[in-house]
Design a protein around this nucleic acid. Structure first.
Length: 880
RNA sequence: GGGCGCGUAGCUCAGUGGGAGAGCGCUCGCUUCACACGCGAGAGGUCGCAGGUUCGAAACCCGCCGCGCCCA
């Protein structure tokens, strides 16, 4: 396999080189749009992204992508998480680990069904009209039409996903896994059917789980309603924002310690409009300072009342049905919508003079995360999953570090949530999804992965919560429950990268299911990445119009309205966007920064040109070979040392999921060391065989280093660097490649840099033309004079008698400028420098004469301070 | 109501006990033989406010002000 792949790659590469190499010298800029499509194609053709299922999960590296909604489109979150995961995958592939990034999409029950229903409505029909089988067909068609979009977009991102094995949560084998899990948990008694309070979403006509509910602020009227005591001795006043639910009231509750009402406990009131007699009960839940301190109890339509009702054994009545209309509990209101009923109830109460007050009231109420409609809490017959037994081991694996959550702070949220977990409502009144494998016939119930024998059975019409199937993602995608080679090679996976908002919804559930069904944690590291907000600090969202399309950043196009400056994005290219997003990655939310994307684009272009410079100058036939040994030029040893340092830093940052520093560190190396200094330092040298080989080596290593972050430009350049073979994406680093740090070279070149910067500053202050060479005497540079004089544009002279116009003391050396600076100007600058030095000396002196500091500060700190003082004094002396 | 986090240069963010940093923006200079998406030199900050701990605080502790998120 490996052989075949390489052969194919080599053939293509050869063809490609012919086409492109000639033109590289004329390409002053890296043009992503021209380069990216063919590079993606080469990667895909190579088969590199589809590793054979060999070896063990310990040796291999794998990540399961959080499955995007099948009909979704790439948004900023996908692009960020895609960049993160691809960087990890490419990095570990370079380390020689067989790496698989598992690809697939989610059927996304409610979201997809809603879209298809919307289309049906446009066509003048509905799902009810065409029936369930036809609706399912239409939804599959919809998936055929739009399902490929996001996959293609991931390709554009350079994501090295295994496109050859694309999974879907409704694939036949995946469905088998889902049904098996349901049946197994049912047989364990952990899945059960019950009448229970659920979050009813009128928008989707289905129950939804607690996690799919969001609280929003609402402005309502708080009605104070008088309920007369049955014995006629008075009344109690209850406060409610939902007077229509009073029709299902079963009690009035007061706090047991509330002295105002203690005498009433045990008495009854008569429910207005209905005439039912309601007991007055005592419950600690009631807040004495809210409203009148009397609470109407409606177990059928309020979660808290439901709990109170169960505590007190109260009946559960339903005034509102699943259709969002009033039931015939009170026939007068039957069939009205909730809003109509509220109006009617209030009018009727008014007629009876029962309303004592109306106050404006602002509070938070539940809304459906999916449909955006206000949740109607009601009691419904649903399937639930018991979570306690599943949660305990999932807490344990995080506590004992078998699953590590990054950043650490998120572990606590995870544990807290699992410790307080409640039963999970898993049935949904939808058609698109995994239909619950339960059949009924009369009083009989059958649960199984295959339909029951015999006639007269009807299947439960509900489907499972989408997250039920997602919870199996890391192993069901690899063929579980069958014992497949894929499962053996890639499960458990290594990293799960995701945003904070689905830590409970998805991550915790995968851990629970993974432990229960495979006996192993589904991944070892969970990276919880930042959420990128719009530039104005608001959430990025389509409905707010604050979204930014990653592809518009890549290709260029009009800036969305959140950018107040308007105009258009330039084409930043995929490398720029990937770099920018990684640079924005953090442990907390960040605002989108176009500057970071631009920085990435600049880096790609810089690397392109640096490589071009090298290729334009090296000897023909040169092959990469580092200049080794102490006799090699100091700058050559220096760049190898800096390269080793950059590699070590990059590795450490990837290993600790610090993507921002990994990316920015790369930038600093390429700009701040390779280009600003090293390439400038060698410009005066002859490009002989040794230097050519060395340069090719440095370029090659830099491309390897940068590849996981900016894969396109590095792949493009790799192909043009002599001595490279095959794809950079397939390149595996040998163990301990290259030399390590060289302290002496680092020290020497640091002196060169400091000296050059000091001289440049003087030149600039003196108004010297940048191109002009100034005569100067250099002292104490220990053989580094040629490097300094070239970069600082000095002509060294040996004339000890010449009177300098300025003396620049720096880094233990002195530069005597013999011309170029006006003596008055020089005097002023020297005076300024003197003052700065004196101030610093004073500071250090004060510190060292403070007994507290000398006695209590650690010895190395005191020592460093002494050395500093000495250095400063020497510089001052040189100045005078 | 409970919890978590944030406030550092004009903007976006690093910096978690020992001389305030980066990118962008800004100023000045430069067609220096890879790159003007470039190069060089600069300006710019009582590190939200007020106490405390310490020889020493942007960092640690307490309080306040402002902002965000999660849970109930």
């Amino acid at each position: 396999m490996q052989h075949r792949v390489h052969a194919v790659v080599r053939r293509r590469a050869a063809l490609h080189t012919l086409r492109c190499f000639m033109s590289l010298k004329d390409r002053k800029r890296f043009e992503p749009s021209e380069v990216e499509p063919r590079i993606v194609q080469r990667w895909l053709d190579s088969g590199l992204f589809h590793p054979d299922p060999e070896g063990t999960a310990q040796e291999n590296f794998s990540i399961a992508i959080p499955p995007p909604n099948v009909t979704g489109a790439l948004h900023m979150g996908h692009a960020l998480n895609g960049s993160i995961q691809d960087t990890l995958i490419r990095y570990h592939r370079q380390r020689g680990r067989r790496s698989k990034w598992i690809l697939g999409t989610d059927h996304a029950g409610i979201a997809t069904q809603t879209q298809v229903e919307k289309r049906l409505k446009e066509q003048g029909t509905s799902r009810e009209e065409i029936g369930r089988p036809a609706f399912i067909d239409r939804t599959w068609e919809w998936r055929e039409e739009f399902g490929g979009t996001i996959i293609e977009q991931f390709k554009r991102l350079g994501a090295s996903l295994d496109y050859e094995e694309e999974r879907f949560t409704l694939d036949e084998r995946y469905v088998e896994a889902v049904l098996k899990v349901f049946v197994d948990l049912y047989n364990k008694g952990w899945i059960y059917r019950d009448n229970y309070m659920v979050n009813w979403d009128p928008g989707s006509g289905s129950a939804i789980s607690d996690l799919e509910v969001e609280e929003r602020e609402a402005h309502d009227t708080l009605f104070h309603i008088a309920y007369p005591l049955t014995d006629g001795s008075g009344e109690v006043v209850v406060a409610t924002v939902r007077p229509e639910t009073m029709l299902a009231d079963v009690a009035v509750a007061v706090h047991p310690d509330d002295e105002r009402y203690q005498h009433l406990i045990g008495q009854t009131v008569t429910l207005p409009l209905v005439g039912r007699e309601l007991p007055i009960i005592a419950d600690e839940y009631v807040k004495t300072d809210f409203g009148t301190g009397c609470l109407k109890i409606t177990p059928g339509h309020d979660p808290n009342d439901f709990e109170i009702g169960r505590r007190h054994g109260l009946p559960e009545l339903s005034a509102i049905g699943e259709d969002g209309r009033m039931t015939d509990l009170v026939p007068r209101y039957a069939g009205l919508t909730v809003a109509e009923a509220q109006e009617a109830v209030v009018a009727d109460l008014d007629a009876e003079h029962r309303i004592r007050a109306r106050d404006p009231y602002t509070h938070t109420v539940p809304f459906s995360h999916r449909s955006g409609q206000r949740i109607e809490p009601l009691i419904s017959l649903q399937w639930f999953m018991k979570m306690d037994e599943l949660a305990a081991p999932a807490i344990q694996v995080v506590r004992d570090g078998r699953v590590r959550i990054h950043p650490e702070s998120q572990s606590r949220r995870y544990v807290d949530w699992l410790e307080n977990i409640r039963p999970w409502c898993i049935s949904r009144q939808l058609w698109w999804g995994h239909q619950i494998p339960v059949w009924y016939r009369g009083d009989e119930t059958y649960v199984g992965t295959e339909p029951p024998e015999g006639d007269g059975w009807t299947r439960d019409p509900d489907v499972l919560d989408t997250w039920f199937s997602s919870a199996l993602w890391p192993f069901a995608t690899l063929g579980w429950p069958a014992d497949t080679p894929e499962l053996r090679a890639f499960y458990p996976t290594d990293v799960l990268s995701t945003a904070r908002d689905i830590l409970f919804l998805w991550v915790a559930r995968m851990v629970m299911m993974g432990l229960e069904f495979t006996g192993e944690v589904p991944f070892e590291d969970v990276y919880v990445h930042s959420v990128i907000q719009a530039p104005d600090g608001r959430r990025m969202s389509k409905s707010l119009g604050t979204g930014i399309d990653p592809l518009t950043l890549i290709d260029g196009g009009p800036r969305p309205p959140v950018f107040t400056q308007g105009g258009t994005f330039p084409s930043y290219g995929t490398d720029g966007v990937r770099f920018g997003l990684l640079a924005m990655a953090s442990t907390q939310d960040v605002r989108f920064s176009e500057e970071k994307v631009a920085q990435g684009q600049a880096l790609a272009n810089k690397l392109f040109n640096a490589t071009r410079f090298v290729l334009l100058n090296v000897q023909d036939g040169a092959a990469p070979a580092p200049a080794a040994g102490p006799e090699a030029p100091v700058e050559d040893r220096w760049i190898l040392s800096r390269l080793a340092s950059a590699k070590a830093d990059f590795a450490a940052r990837i290993d600790t999921f610090d993507f921002s520093k990994a990316a920015l560190g790369l930038y600093d190396f390429v700009y701040g060391e390779l280009c600003d200094w090293y390439l400038e330092l060698i410009k005066g040298r002859e490009f002989d065989a040794a230097l050519s080989g060395h340069l090719l080596h440095v370029v090659r290593e830099t491309l390897v280093l940068a590849h996981p972050v900016i894969p396109f430009v590095t792949e493009e350049l790799w192909e043009n660097v002599p001595g490279t073979e095959g794809l950079l994406a397939a390149y595996v680093e040998g163990p301990g490649d290259g030399p390590g740090r060289d302290e002496a070279a680092e020290r020497d070149v640091a002196r060169v840099i400091a000296t050059v910067q000091a001289v440049r500053s003087w030149r600039d202050a003196g108004g010297v033309k940048p191109g002009a060479f100034l005569r100067a005497r250099l002292d104490g540079l220990d053989g580094l004079e040629p490097l300094v004089s070239r970069l600082a544009r000095l002509t060294p002279v040996d004339d000890g008698a010449a009177e300098p116009v300025a003396v620049i003391p720096v880094a233990g050396a002195e530069v005597f400028l013999l011309e170029g600076v006006d003596p008055a100007e020089a005097a002023a600058k020297i005076e300024a420098a003197r003052r700065t030095l004196l101030a610093e000396i004073q500071r250090a002196d004060a510190k060292l004469s403070n007994p507290g500091f000398v006695d209590k500060a650690p010895a190395p700190v005191v020592e460093a301070e002494r050395a500093k003082l000495e250095r400063l004094r020497a510089e001052l002396e040189a100045l005078e």
